[in-house]
Simulated assay, not measured.
Amino acid sequence: MDRSVFHVRLQNFEVQAERILDASLRTRPIAVISSHHQNGTIIALSTEAKAEGLCQGMKVSLARKIGHSALLMPYNSTLYARMHHYVTRIVTNYSPLVEPTVFGQYYLDMSGMEAIHRSRTQAGYHISNDIHGKAGLAGQIGISANKLVSHIATIVTPEKIHKVNVGDESKFLAPLTAEVLPTVREQSIQKLVRFLHLKEVQHIQNIVTNETVSLVLFRKYHVQLAREAWGKDTSMVTPPTQKDHIVEQVILKQDTNDETQLRAVTKHLAEQVAFRLRYKQQVARSITVAVHYIDGYQFNKTDTATQNDNHTISTLCLDLLQRANRRRNRIRAVVIDATNMKPIANQLMLFRNNGVNNRALASAMDTVRTKYGFDSIQSAAHLNITR
């Protein structure tokens, strides 16, 4: 039985959600922005806003000068999350294996559904019409034998439904720009591809055919890049699972690369994570700090914590921030994710040391925060966070 993977992409999801909430916006040029600060950027925009010269990633200060009639709307994460969850429930009616990704994008494993739908294309139309009828959202659906090709199909084709037949993956990818391949977005590969003027996927296909040359050029990325260039992907559609983890994140009021500001934000998030760990009487064997840049890139680093006091968690997270922040671009968001929880048993010490003092201080702060709220007592570093 051939695999059949659908990728649903609801174009300009944020703009469509705003227009559903307010019908008066349906013919007006609008742009969803990260913040109203002049360094904020455009995240999504309508066709009318594009006609005025605005584009995704443009600075808010420049957008205000160019698009005088365009309405700049703040990012409404609560609205988008609710719409995203609602659409997930709709597409779950068509397959038991649904993997929601970012807002407005979903993978469906439709393998073995031939007995229900006459054809895969017909199933795609049913799903698209159902989403539009129940949620009022429009988009594209890519159909192929794997997630990679289906995802790319919704990026490059304007058709409502686009199907790539089994065996035609390499032909479909060949004329496309090289940037559609995920591995090409790796910084080192991106520089190499530009230097060698490998503008299309077929140019990469020609190189990876010669394994010796490809290994010299792409080194550790050779195998993955070769698979992507020929349209091969064995990753499965994985429904979301409930993980025992603690996530704290913040979208900065102002995009910045100021080290003092970033360390203050990270320390505040780390104390929130530590507070929740102590409440559960657990320690996280895996703590990840991720930084999200204004151009969409993100980097993260992971390490292990042995204690759950503020000093231990904060020191670890600040070190991970320094290792993860490898670019000069401004940062939009910082995320701390603690997973792999284990119970913790603090051994009583005969003599006081720094570890005992840190745990005693954390316990005293927890007492105040439990009674009066987390923000009732803060470290001095919190004063460096921009309001």
Score class of each variant (00 low, 15 high):
Thr234Asn: 11
Glu48Ser: 10
Ile43Leu: 15
Val335Cys: 15
Gln307Phe: 14
Ala135Met: 14
Ala229Gly: 08
Val87Met: 03
Asp130Ile: 03
Arg327Leu: 14
Val216Glu: 13
Gly57Val: 07
Ile313Ala: 02
Gln187Trp: 14
Asp244Met: 09
Val201Trp: 00
Lys243His: 11
Phe195His: 11
Asp303Thr: 12
Ser61Val: 15
Gly40Pro: 15
Val247Lys: 01
Ile344Asp: 13
Ser95Thr: 00
Arg194Trp: 07
Val216Trp: 08
Ala70Gly: 06
Trp230Gln: 11
Arg219Ile: 09
Gln11Pro: 01
Ile131Tyr: 02
Leu176Cys: 07
Gln16Met: 13
Ser119Cys: 08
Val87Ser: 01
Met1Ala: 14
His126Phe: 14
Ala274Gly: 05
Met110His: 00
Pro96Phe: 12
His68Trp: 01
Tyr293Cys: 09
Lys147Gly: 03
Thr183Cys: 11
Val273Arg: 10
Pro182Ile: 10
Arg19Ser: 00
Lys342His: 10
Ala70Lys: 05
Lys342Gly: 13
Asn93Ala: 12
Tyr86Asn: 08
Met365Ala: 13
Ile33Phe: 05
Val291Pro: 08
Lys280Asp: 03
Ala178Leu: 02
His292Phe: 03
Phe13His: 02
Thr121Gly: 15
Gln190Asn: 07
Thr47Pro: 05
Glu186Asn: 05
Leu192Trp: 03
Val102Ile: 09
Leu348Val: 11
Arg276Cys: 06
Thr27His: 03
Ala174His: 04
Arg120Phe: 03
Leu176Ala: 09
Lys220Asn: 04
Asp309Gly: 04
His36Pro: 12
Gly67Phe: 14
Ile116Met: 09
Lys371Glu: 06
Asp255Phe: 05
Leu25Lys: 09
Ile344Lys: 10
Phe275Asn: 15
Phe275Gly: 13
Ser379Asp: 10
Val60Pro: 03
Val250Asp: 15
Ala345Cys: 10
Ala324Val: 06
Glu159Arg: 00
Leu277Glu: 12
Lys50Ser: 09
Asp309Pro: 03
Gln347Ser: 13
Lys191Val: 14
His151Leu: 02
Gln105Asp: 07
Thr47Tyr: 09
Leu176Asp: 12
Ser363Phe: 03
Arg9Pro: 01
Asp255Tyr: 04
Trp230Val: 06
Thr315Ser: 10
Thr312Met: 02
Phe275Ala: 04
Gln122Ala: 08
Ile43Gly: 01
Ser379Val: 11
Thr183Pro: 11
Ile155Asp: 04
Lys191Thr: 11
Gly53Glu: 07
Arg9Lys: 04
Arg323Phe: 08
Gln11Arg: 06
Thr302Ala: 04
Ser77Thr: 12
Ile66Tyr: 06
Leu181Lys: 01
Glu186Ser: 07
Arg120Val: 00
Leu137Phe: 07
Gln298Lys: 15
Glu114Lys: 12
Asp375Lys: 12
Ile377Gly: 05
Ile30Gly: 09
Asn325Cys: 10
Arg332Pro: 07
Thr157Cys: 08
Leu181Arg: 00
Arg120His: 04
Asp109Ala: 01
Met236Cys: 06
Thr260Leu: 07
Gly40Ser: 14
Ala138Met: 12
Glu48Ala: 15
Val237Arg: 00
Thr256Val: 11
